[in-house]
Design a protein around this nucleic acid. Structure first.
Lengths: 113, 113
DNA sequence: ATCATGCTTAGCCATGTCGCTAACTAATAT
DNA sequence: ATATTAGTTAGCGACATGGCTAAGCATGAT
């Protein structure tokens, strides 16, 4: 069985929450402080903090504290493993389609023989 | 705020489980019956059934029962929304990089004036 | 020195997830 | 007719998740 890939699981899990995706989308426009990120969500600060922790743990964002303000920025490379997995999946699928096509060709040749 | 996108959330959630990803990878090679899918997982049948339900609910697989055997097949188009979101995210990021670059150019011109 | 701001921590609650066993149904094989 | 096979349903338990409030703690403003 394909062995655990905890990083990928965590990555997809992080992306599975709409609030977290919204935060990432916001951050794609540029860095922001925590309060700034929390405002559009309608959620309380501690809740948003938790989402930010999740995002930071999987490496999707980086944060730094300056004085009492924490600034968050996106880490776009962190999305790569997800893309890679999806691409692999697609190429597996296409390989299979290719084999099916080959079989169909072969079947036609047999029939015409 | 970006409005809810429950389908995307469910899709990412479905992909966030290693067992489910393993099942998809297996199915990329061709259809399989339930028992066949359960064997390599080391999990009990009802557990695997639950995973299959999740996959079917989000449209990642299709199943059909013939006699007492249920056959499962992948539905590769179902991955598209995930890919699309990742691509959008990347293009947002690149647009931002573009703007930063433009700002840097402008700053250099100002400085050289 | 005091107050307001911005985050952080601790802890609670409801709900969801993932595993299991046990018992059931339906189809096929003997 | 009976036994086996393949899946299904029901329901349990442990733990994770996502929301909240309340209280704490630095930093910056007055």
């Amino acid at each position: 069985m394909a062995k655990h890939d905890p990083a990928l699981s965590q990555l997809f899990h992080a992306l599975s929450d709409p609030t977290r995706r919204a935060i990432l989308t916001r951050l794609a426009e540029g860095p922001a402080r925590v309060t700034e990120l929390s405002e559009p969500t309608g959620l309380r600060l501690p809740t948003v903090m938790r989402h930010l922790s999740v995002l930071e743990e999987v490496g999707l964002i980086a944060t730094a504290k300056d004085g009492r303000v924490r600034t968050c920025a996106i880490v776009p490379e962190a999305l790569a493993p997800a893309r890679t997995w999806l691409d692999e999946q697609r190429s597996l699928w296409e390989a299979r389609l290719g084999r099916l096509e080959a079989m169909a060709m072969k079947a036609m040749k047999e029939r015409d023989r």
